[in-house]
């Protein structure tokens, strides 16, 4: 089965020398959710923009349903956009403030030759009260607005939805409703999803597979359960150990990795994490480490994995 989306050796440099994406490759199968996690500067949002071709990459290839869309013009891309959709983080900013909800829902149908009457069905599908159709975005809550964005995304039965931090600006209880809706939609339609987030718990909940980004490079990828249970790359271990589970009875196992993410300008030739990594070897600075297999489907870009000396020792439980 061909991947819905295949990203091959993608590189993106912004004017000014910021290398946001650094040789990234991954593929998403139909019906699959790939979680893309990373902290600020990891390039995760840029990857989202590149995957939907709202941005053109510096190098590399983007294949959507087997078709190379890397260099397609805006006009050629337009019909494809019916099947390649995106939902952004900020629900308040993602909808034209001068259009009613009804018109906003009709727009994708109008653009791709759909039946405008389906707008009401879309509203019902995302459990949006029909009374909101005549309202303007500022009259709706954040959760309702995000439902509008999702309804717009699914209007033309897409094959892939890129979700860029879709629940990060929503309250906890509202967030759960949106995640549930996304899960239902995937079950019903088999749509594939690229779920971009910094929220580890949410990514774990919604993703089948996860890729961890650090400074524009994928340092580890694997099935969600395996990656969260036995993270291989020292950065993944650090990231997971810094997470605060919302449960006082789960003890924190903190790795004392110090420092912050360096700026993505003038990146070193070797492993980007080597400067902060307690396990770094001289060889880590020589060149970008290759992916090493860890477990079925799980691999990480760390030299230490070859002889299994990649485990960070947890510091004492600070609580």
């Amino acid at each position: 089965m061909t991947a819905v989306l295949a990203i091959q050796n993608l590189v993106h440099r912004f004017p000014g020398g910021v290398q946001a994406v650094n040789d990234v490759s991954f593929a998403i199968a139909p019906g699959e959710t790939l979680g893309l996690v990373g902290e600020s500067g990891s390039g995760k949002s840029t990857i989202g923009l590149l995957a939907t071709r709202l941005l053109a990459p510096t190098q590399g290839r983007i294949l959507f349903e087997g078709q190379d869309i890397t260099r397609l013009s805006a006009a050629t891309l337009r019909p494809l956009r019916a099947r390649l959709q995106v939902v952004f983080q900020d629900p308040w900013g993602a909808l034209n403030p001068r259009m009613t909800i009804g018109r906003l829902l009709e727009e994708p149908l109008r653009l791709h030759g759909g039946n405008l009457a389906e707008a009401r069905l879309l509203a019902e599908r995302v459990r949006l009260p029909l009374a909101t159709l005549g309202r303007y975005p500022h009259e709706l809550s954040g959760g309702q607005l995000q439902r509008v964005s999702i309804a717009r995304a699914i209007a033309n039965r897409p094959k892939l939805i890129v979700l860029d931090e879709p629940t990060s600006s929503l309250d906890l209880s509202v967030r759960a409703g949106i995640l549930q809706l996304l899960e239902e939609l995937q079950r019903e339609t088999g749509v594939a999803m690229l779920f971009i987030s910094h929220d580890l718990e949410t990514v774990r909940l919604v993703s089948h597979r996860v890729a961890v980004l650090y400074l524009g490079r994928i340092v580890e990828t694997g099935p969600a359960a395996a990656l969260f249970e036995t993270p291989g790359h020292p950065y993944t271990q650090t990231l997971l150990s810094a997470h605060l589970p919302p449960d006082p009875f789960v003890a924190l196992r903190r790795h004392r990795v110090q420092g912050e993410i360096p700026s993505p300008i003038n990146l070193p030739p070797g492993c980007f994490f080597a400067g902060r990594c307690p396990l770094a070897l001289p060889a880590c600075n020589a060149g970008p480490p290759a992916m090493q297999p860890l477990a079925p489907g799980q691999e990480a870009a760390c030299l230490r994995i070859a002889d299994r000396t990649n485990r960070l020792e947890p510091a004492e439980d600070p609580a």
Binding site: R81, F88, A94, P97, L111
Partner: peptide, 25 residues
């Protein structure tokens, strides 16, 4: 603005992005 980006992502042709989404705002 995100909504302009969203309009492009929805498949709006350029003239429509300009006249329907940017101009009124």
């Amino acid at each position: 603005a995100t909504f302009v980006r969203a309009a492009v992502a929805a498949g709006n042709p350029e003239w429509r992005v300009l006249l329907v989404h940017i101009l009124p705002n």
